[in-house]
């Protein structure tokens, strides 16, 4: 199983970044072994379509679960089509997010919850 947590920085102690498309880092974590890989998000300052790029990037990593604060409509439709489970967590560290997921206390994000930006 692979979980992606959006983070402001690299590492388990980093705070979760609530913005999916424009987060600082993607933390890919195997919750069984706690092995992780962190990748910088190159779309932080994209003029538009950051969520689309971010979704392609994390889907390409074969994730099962995404933990973030908010997801825009374009990214949401991509994640939905690939069956990625999206969980809400925005205040705390990456480690706390993973622990909350394991404890089953995170709520599912069932619809796009950010207006997104359509890229003018």
């Amino acid at each position: 199983m692979k979980i992606c947590v959006t983070a402001s920085n690299s590492g388990f102690g980093a705070p979760v970044d609530p913005h999916f498309g424009r987060c600082g880092y993607f933390m890919f974590v195997d919750p069984g072994s706690m092995e992780f890989e962190s990748i910088e998000n190159r779309q932080v300052s994209a003029s538009g379509g950051a969520g689309v790029q971010a979704a392609q990037q994390v889907i390409g990593k074969g994730i099962d679960v995404l933990i973030t604060g908010s997801v825009g409509p374009n990214a949401f439709s991509l994640l939905l089509s690939e069956g990625v489970e999206i969980k809400a967590f925005s205040a705390g560290s990456v480690l706390e997010a993973i622990e909350a997921y394991r404890a089953g206390t995170l709520e599912t994000i069932g619809a796009a919850n950010s207006a997104g930006k359509s890229g003018v």
């Binding site: 994209a46 003029s47 538009g48 379509g49 950051a50 689309v52 790029q53 979704a55 392609q56 889907i59 390409g60 991509l78 089509s81 690939e82 890229g119």
Partner: peptide, 9 residues
């Protein structure tokens, strides 16, 4: 450049 096309698996 505008991310209007996304490639999924």
């Amino acid at each position: 450049q505008y991310n209007a096309i996304a490639k999924l698996p």
